[in-house]
Write a protein that binds this DNA or RNA. Sequence first.
DNA 1: AAATATATACGAATCATTTCGTAGATACAA
DNA 2: TTGTATCTACGAAATGATTCGTATATATTT
Lengths: 128, 128
Amino acid sequence: MKPEPTDGELEILQLIWKHGPMTVRQIHDHLSSEKQTGYTTTLKMMQIMTEKGFLGRKVYGRGHIYHAKLSEKKTTQNRLDAFIDATFGGSASQLVMQLLGSKTTSEEELSKIREILDDYENQKNKQS
Amino acid sequence: MKPEPTDGELEILQLIWKHGPMTVRQIHDHLSSEKQTGYTTTLKMMQIMTEKGFLGRKVYGRGHIYHAKLSEKKTTQNRLDAFIDATFGGSASQLVMQLLGSKTTSEEELSKIREILDDYENQKNKQS
DNA sequence: AAATATATACGAATCATTTCGTAGATACAA
DNA sequence: TTGTATCTACGAAATGATTCGTATATATTT
């Protein structure tokens, strides 16, 4: 029914979420500064994303300005849920376990995570 | 150089990690109890995974027994790293933030996560 | 021994994503 | 006005994953 954007499509959505509605040219300039890709490739992707209902567009001069039709929050959550299902059998706590025991998670990230958790626990305590 | 297993390939790896080395038949019995798929499809996948170096196999009677050549820990970590990069711009703390604020993470999972974090902080404190 | 069941190997169809060439329209500049 | 740049549209090739039919070998059963 409602397919999720692919990783490639997500890159484009993320640019729009971050910087607001953009033309194909603008998106392509961002993308091509990170990886080598042709203009018509970007164009085609955005056309397909529009067909799929991920983007909408409005005429602007000779071309169009594209905007996101998916919410960042929901899209991210859907990806996260699918990932936890596929990788950790649906267990979020196992994910956190892996995160904490991992060398690839920097000390800085870890302390941020600790803060977030503390804040979260404080919130909970207030409520009770 | 060293490609990561796809989601489909991961399902097979997970069965072997969980239950130990298995024949195609055994894998297929597990898989087909969850989703509709043909025997030769499973066979072909496992042959390809062997070519890719994800599985190894030993002759056993008429057929083979397949074993994992990838470690569960490393494979999971690689997937997690790639996922955090693609979805949260590399920020693990943002992932945790999303996790805590999400309805899809059950109360039970949340309290487990809290425990894990507490344990982790205690460990850290001991060290210092 | 003949029929049946169960393996592997392999080629090819199918499907989705990504990539890009080419054509046509329109603006802009020399 | 003639060329140059910049858009869109569209078809189709390239890539990679998955699916499956068919051939062949080898056991097992009757």
